[in-house]
Design a protein around this nucleic acid. Structure first.
Lengths: 151, 151
DNA sequence: CGGCATTAGATATATTATAGCGTAGTGTAG
DNA sequence: CTACACTACGCTATAATATATCTAATGCCG
């Protein structure tokens, strides 16, 4: 990993620590380490991939270790779960409520997070027209990314 | 189950048979039975729930039996998979390509399928602005349905 | 009928996720 | 400072979801 990338990740971890502190949540060593592993990953990473990596430095880690850390990080909006992939990625907008939408490339597996308010609003209105009170929208669009697309 | 409901389900099965025949796909006895079980269910139903029900009449059914039938039904657009729930529901618009969006009530578990073109278009445009070529959008909105909502 | 493709049976195993209970650390009211 | 409540974590087991692989049966088409 480049020095630049390490610096960026360190800054993201500090930002996460700030978010947690302001909200009275404890970003423990374990949780910070798991968040670090997700930030280091090049793309979506599964719970058991994280577990394998975590075990390199924390031999006694078991599935609940990872799932509890993931639950915490999701509850603090520091990461997202991609339901389609059963995998996890960092939030682009650390620690804030935001409308998240994901573009998943079927060729290369790359995932791009976007935040499109027009689409989010349209979905909210569509739900409300049914008398439904939306709390969270899962939006995962599968297709081909710009780099993989050859017409 | 009411006689009315049985009639409706029989009609839905016939419609599915028609769709398959027109497309040269084989709605075998097994696949028809699994689709029937999904139509009979009051709400989303998991693969293993289906397997248990299927076993009542087909003792030798095993997980691959169900998963293969589900894959077929999804490929023919006769059912949807809800990624958030790992569960399956019938399509409202049997056998046609359509923009499907789901409203999932956290209180009662009811799932409502809607088809909102404004939201679907907004998502498509958002994806295309990233140079992405969307093929399928997974949209599952969690919240509270009209019946469960008490302000 | 014979050959090919599709479907289904059968067994095993992989992958993803949670339950339940005990222990240790942390903050805090008394 | 200490007893209590609370949270986090360790640990073991197990549940729930899904797929791989090989073989047998079935249907289709020439």
């Amino acid at each position: 990993m480049s020095a630049d990338r390490r610096t960026v990740i360190a800054a993201q971890l500090e930002a996460a620590a700030g978010v947690c502190e302001r909200e009275g949540a404890r970003l423990t060593e374990l949780r910070r380490r798991v968040l670090g592993l997700i930030l280091e990953a090049e793309g979506p990473v599964t719970a058991y991939q994280l577990l394998d990596r975590l075990k390199e430095t924390r031999k006694r880690a078991a599935p609940p270790t990872i799932y509890r850390a993931l639950d915490f990080l999701i509850s603090r909006r520091l990461i997202h779960k991609l339901e389609r992939l059963n995998a996890f990625v960092p939030c682009i907008e650390t620690g804030h409520e935001h409308a998240a939408q994901f573009l998943i490339c079927r060729q290369c597996g790359t995932v791009i997070e976007i935040e499109d308010h027009a689409a989010a609003d349209a979905l909210e209105h569509a739900a409300e027209r049914e008398g439904f009170h939306p709390r969270r929208a899962i939006v995962e669009i599968e297709g081909t990314c710009a780099l993989c697309f050859h017409p």
